[in-house]
Write a protein that binds this DNA or RNA. Structure first.
Lengths: 159, 159
DNA sequence: CTTGTTAGTTGTATCGTCGAACCATGTTGG
DNA sequence: CCAACATGGTTCGACGATACAACTAACAAG
C-alpha cells in the first residue's frame, strides 16, 4: 500500500468519525413528534411509508437488522397503533406490515421533522458545493455496499 | 425554500441514512483486538493516544458525550489497565487521564484494525474520486458543526 | 409422513447513552 | 473569613439498540 493511500485512509477515517460525532449519530436520539419516537421505530415507519406493505424480513433487509430486532420494533409500532400485522392468504408464515392511517399521519410528521434537520445541515453547506457533497456521499454508499458488514464479515473480523 | 433545495435536502438525507446502514454504524460493533473492545472505549483510547493526557471533561467534549458517560467509559478502561487516573497538583477536582504502556500498545493495535477497515472502504472508491470524497466529508463536518446537537438543541427540538 | 427449510417470536446478554442527585473541591463577594 | 455559587466527577436508574441462540408454526419435498 502506498503512503498516499494510507494518508487518504487516515483522512477518511478522521472525517467519518468527526461526522458521526458532530452530527450526533452516537446519541440515542428521540426523534421529535407528538410523543418522542425512538429512532429505530422512526426508520422502520419511514421505510414502510415509502415502500408499501412489506414482510418483516424485507423490512429487516432494508434496515440491515436482525429478524429478532425487527420483530421487537414492529411489536412496539403495533402497540403504538401505527402498524398492523396481517396474515394475507398464501404463505401463512409471512407477516405483512402495513401502516395504519394513524401510522401514515405519524410517518408524515416524522418525515417533516427529519427534513427540517437535514435542511439545516444543507443550509450550512455552501450552495455551490452541495451537488459535490451529495455526489460524494453516493460514492461512499456504493463503496460501503462493496463491503457489507454482515454478521459473517463481522464475525470474521473479530477473529 | 426552493424546491431545488428541498430536493437536495431529501437526497442528502437519503444518502446519509443509506451510509449509516451500509457502513453498519447502527450495530454494536465490537472492535477486533486481542480481546474484543467496545467501540466507545476504542474511541476514547484513540483520542487519548492522539492528544496526550486529558481531563475527563476535555475527553467528553472531543467525544461529545455526557460527563457521566465518560466517567463510566474511563472506569472500564482503568479496570482494563489501559488508562490511569491521576490527580496532578493544582486543581484537585481535575482527573487527568493518561494511557499506560499497555494502553498505548492497545491503542496501536486498535488503530491498525481501524485503518484496515477504512482502507477497505477506500479501496472501493475509484482513485480519482477519493480526494473529492474526502473534501466533501470535510465540508459536511463543518456543516454539522454549525448546528451542534448539544443537549439544549436536542431538548428544544423535542418540544 | 418424515425431513428439512423458512418466517417470526422470545429469552438473554451486551453496548451506549442520558439526566438527576450527590459529593468534593474551588472561587468569589460581602 | 465564611457563605453562596460554580465546576469536575461519580453513582444510580432508566431506556434504546442490537445480536445470537433456542424455539414454534407453517410450508415444501422426497
Amino acid at each position: 500500500m502506498l503512503d498516499d493511500e494510507l494518508d487518504q485512509a487516515v483522512a477518511l477515517q478522521g472525517r467519518i468519525t468527526a461526522f458521526v460525532r458532530a452530527f450526533g449519530l452516537h446519541q440515542p436520539d428521540r426523534t421529535p413528534c407528538g410523543t418522542p419516537v425512538p429512532s429505530s421505530e422512526a426508520h422502520a415507519v419511514g421505510e414502510l411509508d415509502r415502500d408499501g406493505p412489506l414482510t418483516q424480513t424485507a423490512l429487516g433487509e432494508r434496515l440491515r437488522l436482525e429478524k429478532s430486532t425487527v420483530s421487537r420494533i414492529v411489536s412496539q409500532l403495533t402497540s403504538r397503533g401505527w402498524v398492523c400485522r396481517a396474515n394475507r392468504d398464501g404463505d401463512g408464515r409471512l407477516v405483512w406490515l402495513e401502516l395504519t392511517p394513524e401510522g401514515r399521519r405519524a410517518a408524515g410528521e416524522l418525515a417533516v421533522a427529519r427534513a427540517a434537520r437535514f435542511a439545516d445541515l444543507l443550509r450550512n453547506i455552501p450552495a455551490e458545493q452541495r451537488p459535490a457533497v451529495i455526489e460524494a456521499l453516493t460514492t461512499l454508499v456504493d463503496a460501503a455496499d462493496g463491503q457489507p458488514p454482515t454478521a459473517e464479515v463481522r464475525a470474521a473480523a473479530r477473529d
